[in-house]
Simulated assay, not measured.
Amino acid sequence: MLVLTRKIGESVLIGGEIEVTLLDIKGDSIRIGVNAPRETRIQRSEIVNAVVAENTAAADTGAGADAADAIVAALARRRDAQP
């Protein structure tokens, strides 16, 4: 990991297309601005990690199999109820 010291208003260039500028410092928080091409995805890591964790938890519950079994059972009951 590269660690740099920047002052308010100073920037860092990444790959010539992405510019990260230090905008403000308040207490233990900083505000940064990111200037990048529109096709570049910029996401907060904690949000990405939360989505991955949620998707993993949903996949691990087996709810999909239970739902499929319920649909099959409902269709079978409907078929059996028809004259």
Rank of each mutant, 00 (worst) to 15 (best):
E39Y: 12
I25N: 01
R78K: 08
N35H: 12
A36H: 04
S45D: 08
V12Q: 05
G33R: 15
I30T: 02
L22R: 07
A76D: 08
A74M: 07
E54F: 04
E19Y: 02
N49I: 00
L23Q: 15
S29C: 13
A73E: 04
V3P: 01
V34S: 04
V48P: 03
A50T: 00
R6L: 15
G62D: 00
N55L: 14
A57T: 05
L22A: 06
D60F: 11
A73C: 04
L22M: 07
L4Q: 10
T5R: 13
I14S: 11
A65I: 11
A67P: 01
E54H: 13
A76G: 07
T61F: 07
T56I: 09
R38G: 05
S45P: 02
D24L: 06
A76V: 15
E46Y: 09
V20D: 01
G27A: 05
K26H: 03
G64W: 06
A58T: 06
V52S: 12
V51G: 02
V48Y: 12
G16M: 02
G62F: 12
G64V: 08
E10N: 07
P83K: 09
V48S: 04
L75T: 00
G15Q: 11
G27F: 00
T56Y: 13
V20E: 00
A74P: 00
R38V: 06
A67R: 10
L4Y: 04
A50F: 02
I18G: 01
S29A: 10
L13H: 14
E17S: 11
A73G: 03
A74N: 09
A73N: 04
E46Q: 06
G33E: 03
E19T: 13
K7W: 03
R38E: 04
A65N: 08
R41E: 12
I47A: 13
G27M: 02
G9S: 09
I30L: 13
E19V: 13
N55Q: 11
A65S: 10
V34W: 05
R79V: 07
A57W: 09
A59E: 01
L2E: 13
D60V: 10
V12E: 06
R44F: 00
A36R: 00
K26D: 12
D66C: 01
P83M: 12
A63S: 15
A36Y: 04
A81K: 08
A53R: 08
R31D: 03
L2D: 08
D66E: 15
R31W: 11
R38I: 01
S45N: 15
V72T: 13
I8N: 01
R6T: 15
E10P: 00
I47H: 12
D66W: 03
V34I: 15
S29G: 07
D24C: 03
G62S: 02
V20A: 02
A36C: 11
Q43G: 07
E39L: 09
G16E: 00
N49F: 05
